[in-house]
Design a protein around this nucleic acid. Sequence first.
DNA 1: CTCGCCGGTTCATTGAACGAACTAACTGAT
DNA 2: ATCAGTTAGTTCGTTCAATGAACCGGCGAG
Lengths: 177, 177
Amino acid sequence: MALKKGYAAQDCSLARTLELVGERWTMLVIRDAFYGVRRYSDFLAHLDIPRAVLSTRLRTLTESGVMERRRYEQSPPRDEYVLTEKGRRLWSALFALLMWGQEFTTGGATVRRRYVHAACGHELEAGGGCQSCERPAVPPEDIEVHPGPAAEGPTARHDPVSRALSKPHRLLQPLET
Amino acid sequence: MALKKGYAAQDCSLARTLELVGERWTMLVIRDAFYGVRRYSDFLAHLDIPRAVLSTRLRTLTESGVMERRRYEQSPPRDEYVLTEKGRRLWSALFALLMWGQEFTTGGATVRRRYVHAACGHELEAGGGCQSCERPAVPPEDIEVHPGPAAEGPTARHDPVSRALSKPHRLLQPLET
DNA sequence: CTCGCCGGTTCATTGAACGAACTAACTGAT
DNA sequence: ATCAGTTAGTTCGTTCAATGAACCGGCGAG
């Protein structure tokens, strides 16, 4: 972040966390990575983020070990960005924010996406666990995103990522775009 | 936030959440509120935040219903800022970020604060629950902050809030400063 | 060889953060 | 009554980051 002082001076684990993932756009990039977005152009189209900011964020996340950049094609050279274990462990925090938003910030609107325990088909509860399986915390690999009641409609987006997510999709698996 | 476009355009609950609590400093203000900080000057001294930014954040949080401003003294007129129910519900997200930071961002350093289930005295696990009580999610009212191994030392702060937190303290209870 | 795509970088403009200084309301001590 | 001190801000000039449009280089296809 490199502001004059940065709040890293706090020597507090929350402050250090926010230095890494608390900047504008960063959490949305990570959310998309959980959805299976891996390519620069897909992040760009789905987030409507300025190119320069996306480049900066991907570099920061890569340098701090939250994401990993890897070559998946030699010619033409193409890289993809995927979450590392460190990054995948952000799921519980991300999900908690997501659920809070669904409860408190939807102005009468209904839910756009539902999160389902793939093993049993039940929707996750707010704590990130599965009630019917009595699992306290379902890991992201076992979760599917399903389109919710508000997925279609006047506010729907039409980028490749949004279209790919109109079908149920396993978290962290690459999206077909 | 009122940037040109804001990412509220995403019509996604995470984006809306971050519009409210994703700005620089905001989460640290909320964390301090959980610690029991209520007065302008205490936020200021503990966070080393510019006064103008603190004013803006407290206004935004108040307007969005995350915190409430209330008169606790008539003369001289003094207001305090306390979390509403909406704000208190951010605990699980905040705690998840905190634990992630403790695991991944402490560069060999040790923990500054520990979070203890007041009813049984056991430290909370990373998911926010209490292992020994088999409670899946301990609410903040039942949690105490204890100074951790790194509370003292060369990096220790000397503001009133940090001093008050050198003793165990129940979350959300006002700090004696 | 040229066209277009992908994954960036560069640049001018705008907006936000920073920190120091200033203000307003009040209290308590001299 | 005056004066210093505390609290809770606002104001303002400077610095830094976000935005969006334009530009660029590698490459493959036609």
